[in-house]
Design a protein around this nucleic acid. Structure first.
Lengths: 342, 342
DNA sequence: ATGAAAGCGCTAACAT
DNA sequence: ATGTTAGCGCTTTCAT
């Protein structure tokens, strides 16, 4: 059962292909009777216009390329879901690639897809790209006329739409909240000190201490560089032993859970005399014991927003040179059981 | 900076487009000197053959459509990763859709993509489709010549390549292992009794009991139909109170974690006098306390296998009518700290 | 060694 | 109301 083309239908009714094309597109030029019979036939035989022919003709594909550092990361999976949902609603398909935090993979992907496969990109930078600070591959495709929307891990240097989390405020708010509920020695644990996102959270932490009139203790600022979560407990244990700590704010769930375990083993009671809050809105927080309070990042909303920005730009291309905008998605503190109620 | 076409290059050197095309494809018909200058120029100006033109001409897109019930499920995310990696290695792109367990969404997706957007599908059935037992949309695209590979949740009735987990054996092995390490009253908790996968695990559980010479106690076979994990503890609590239970095998991590918490609250010590094993290889198991032993499903390998099967079929299309095959990926028992060492 | 022309499936401007 | 034609970007057969 070969797929039906416009040509087949034309032959069926002994008319020209343009008549068929117009009939299918409900053109006023075609008589009602022929339109009806052609549309009926097309429907019954499940005619579908060939995607590649349309894309070639229209010079657009109605598909979005999304490049994500790691699909096993719950946050990114949520963003993906948001993108997919919004894009689908507007008739767009999603081509997805995982950069695996690799600069090369990211670059290859971008290049591979900028051959007319997609109309625009939604991207969160690979860690390697951030470290290398090399974004020429993005400039290139933007110059070719392919719009990009970056989210979460964005490149300041690139002029495009962006969607980011309010990391600074999120961290500051959290510290204030911890201080208000009685914590005095609040540690900051980061596994992403490399990334701008991590730096913003760090700054927010410092700002929060300042606002709460708490001193900065550099021993309580813990940057974990090892990226194997299995080692987190081992790394944290000596630090927790040498210092007085009664609260932790962590940049990610895995290190926060490790901190909880180490604290509990030291005899602390959570949340009675030890509080923990983590960035992210993953599943771990909801399954830990006690369930962990988090700074929720609204991944799905970020994805939806990114998709919306991109599609707007795609569909108003002729319109004008819309200014590029950066949308900040605010975080929410989700109080579970690792902190005292405020 | 408009994208370069073969036509532009032809104009640049005042030759015909066919000369350029042949030069770029390194045809023997073209003189070495012209080949060299054209290739050089193309490279320098970043020429890339237009994807849609190629797809239209070749009647293939080198892209795979993947339809997954839920991207927030770690198992599916792993499969996705496996598919992506293998496909990319062989030069294929991935268009991905989330069916959200919805029959309609699955059907629409399949129909939307079977217009020449993709060369073949990799699919795991939406729960609704399983319940409805309606797979006509798959038959349809297969008849049109689009191959499908199903994984994990497969439709027996559809004749296509399949990749499945060894659910029956996995469950049976686990029960035997629990029995060997001293458990006598092994409960079976399922949140997917609807799905064939769930039924197979159930049967495996029964077989395991039989092999271990343990009686079947219907009170210990717990089918949770509520799909909100927040209610699991509430559901399990009375059952754990009314019955003597010293081990649990669960079809998913969330319910297994709930079981652990309920058991612990009842005063059981894990693993000393209460053992827990769960299917899946998610992140929860590695972060629970104690860390949970699991029946690992090797999601990434399943994805890689599915991609391999599909691509083989795509590239040998003319060859012959290859028999459809079903590949069984065996499970492994990963011993962590919720069970006694064997 | 190079070029002309047809065709992949479709649309749309321009006849008739 | 219907048909002819050119063209989207590319490959390939068949001239020259």
């Amino acid at each position: 059962m070969k797929r039906l083309t416009i040509k087949d239908i034309a032959k069926e009714f002994s008319v020209s292909i343009s008549t068929v094309s117009k009939a299918l597109n409900d053109s006023y030029e075609i008589s009602v009777s022929t339109k009806e019979k052609i549309q009926k036939y097309a429907k019954e035989n499940n005619y579908k216009p060939n995607f590649n022919a349309l894309s070639l003709k229209n010079r657009k594909t109605k598909t979005i390329g999304i490049v994500i550092p790691d699909m096993l990361n719950y946050f990114f999976a949520q963003v993906f879901k948001g993108v997919e949902k919004t894009a689908n609603k507007k008739g767009y398909k999603i081509i997805s690639c995982i950069s695996n935090e690799s600069f090369e993979k990211e670059k290859e992907t971008i290049e591979m897809l900028s051959n007319g496969s997609i109309d625009g990109f939604i991207i969160s930078l690979a860690e390697e790209s951030v470290l290398k600070n090399d974004f020429k591959h993005f400039e290139y495709v933007i110059n070719e006329g392919t719009p990009i929307v970056m989210f979460d891990r964005v490149a300041e240097a690139i002029n495009c739409d962006k969607v980011v989390t309010d990391d600074f405020k999120g961290a500051a708010k959290t510290v204030k909240y911890l201080a208000k509920t009685g914590s005095k020695n609040i540690a900051f644990i980061s596994t992403i000190s490399n990334l701008k996102v991590g730096k913003k959270r760090h700054q927010g932490y410092l700002k929060g201490l300042e606002k709460a009139n708490l001193p900065i203790n550099n021993n309580l600022i813990i940057n974990i560089l090892d990226d194997d979560y299995k080692n987190y407990e081992k790394i944290l244990k000596p630090i927790f032993e040498k210092n007085t700590i009664d609260a932790v704010i962590a940049t990610d769930e895995s290190s926060a859970i490790a901190a909880m375990k180490v604290a509990q083993r030291k005899g602390h009671k959570i949340p009675e005399n030890f509080a923990v809050v983590s960035f992210s809105n993953g599943i771990l927080a909801r399954h830990s014991s006690p369930k962990m309070s988090t700074v929720s990042q609204h991944g799905e909303k970020m994805g939806a927003t990114a998709a919306k920005l991109l599609i707007e730009r795609l569909e108003h291309k002729g319109d004008s040179n819309l200014e590029h905008q950066t949308v900040v998605i605010k975080t929410d503190l989700v109080e579970r059981n690792s902190t005292k109620k405020s």
